[in-house]
Amino acid sequence: MELTTVWFILIAVLWIGYFVLEGFDFGVGILLPFLARNDTERRVMINTIGPVWDGNEVWVLVAGGATFAAFPEWYATLFSGFYLPLLLILLALIVRGVAFEYRHKHDRASWRGRWDKAIFWGSLLPAVLWGVAFANIVRGVPIDENKEYVGGFFDLLGPYALLGGLTTLGLFLTHGAVFVALKTDGDIRHRARDLGLVLGLATAALAVVFLVWTQAITGSLWSSALFVGAALALLGGLFATWKVREGWAFVGTFAAIGLAVAGLFVALFPDVMPSSLDPAWSLTTTNAAATDYTLTIMTWVAVIFTPLVLMYQGWTYWVFRKRISVHHIPAEAAATPPTAGQPTR
C-alpha cells in the first residue's frame, strides 16, 4: 500500500478516535443544563468525564499535527480556508477547558453558573462546527488552482453542511446521554437513559438523511456499507438502552460514530479536499502529501507509540470505571475542604 494511503487511513483513525471520545464529553457538556437538576447532579455529570476529557481532546491536536506532517497542503488549505469556524472552535475549546478546571474552585452559585454556561457553549459550538467542517470537506469547497480556498464564511453554511452539523450534534448528544447512563447511578441514570432514547431516535432520522445525501454526492460501495453499519450500530445501541444494557448501548453509539466517520473518509478518498470549481484542482492524497521519507519516519513513530498511548489511555478508563452517584460527591468541593485552624485574614 502507498504510504500516502497509509497516512490517509491513520488520519482517519485519529479523527475517529477524536469523535468517539470527545463526542461523549461534548454531549455531557451540552446536556449539563438539561439533565442535571441541581449543583450536585451537575458535579456528578462533570466528574464522569473529569479524569478523561483532556486526554480525549489531545486526539484533535494529534490529528492536526499529523495532517501538518503527512499532508502539509491539506493542513494549510483547510486551516486557512475554514478560518472563522476554526477560530470559533478554538475559542470554544479554550473556555470549555478552563471551565472544567476552574468551576469547582469556588462555591458561589454565580461563579459556577458562569462556568456552566462556558461548558455548555464550549461543547455545543464544536459539536456542531466539526460536523459542518467535515460535511464541507466531503462535499468540496471552492479551491483554486493554487490550492487556495477562495470562498467566504457563508459558503461553508450550505444546507448539506448545516445538516452535517446537526447530525454530529445529535450523535454527540446521544453518545453523551448514553455515557451518563453508563457512568452514573440513581435518579440521573434513569433520566439520562430516557433522554438518550429520545435523542437517539431523532438523531437516527437526521443521520439517515445526511448519510444518504452524502452517498448521493460522493459515495462508493464501501462507504455505503459503513453507513449502513453505522445506522445498525445506532439502532442496536438504542435497543440496548431500552433494554437497560448500558455497556452495550455505549458500544453501539461509539461504533455508530466511528463507522459514520470512517464512511465519510472512505467517501472522500482519494481526495482529501475536493475543489468544487474544478476536479483537477482538488487536493488529493498524492498532491497534498509530504515526501515518502517524512511519511516513513512518521509511520515508525506511529507504529511504536500509538499502541502505547492506547494502552495507558485505556488503563485510565479502567481505573475510573466505577459509576458515580450523588452520594460520592463530597459535601464541599475538594478544593475547599473544611480546614480547622484556617487562618483568618
Binding site: V52, D54, G55, G65, A69, P72
Partner: peptide, 26 residues
C-alpha cells in the same frame, strides 16, 4: 516547511500531550 516542521509537532502530540493529559487526570 510542512514536510519538515510538521513531524515534530505531530510527534509532540503523540508522545507528550497524551502523556501529560492522561497522567494528570490520574
Amino acid at each position: 516547511v510542512g514536510d519538515i516542521f510538521g513531524a515534530p509537532l505531530a510527534i509532540e502530540g503523540l508522545l507528550a500531550f497524551f502523556l501529560e493529559s492522561t497522567f494528570l487526570g490520574l
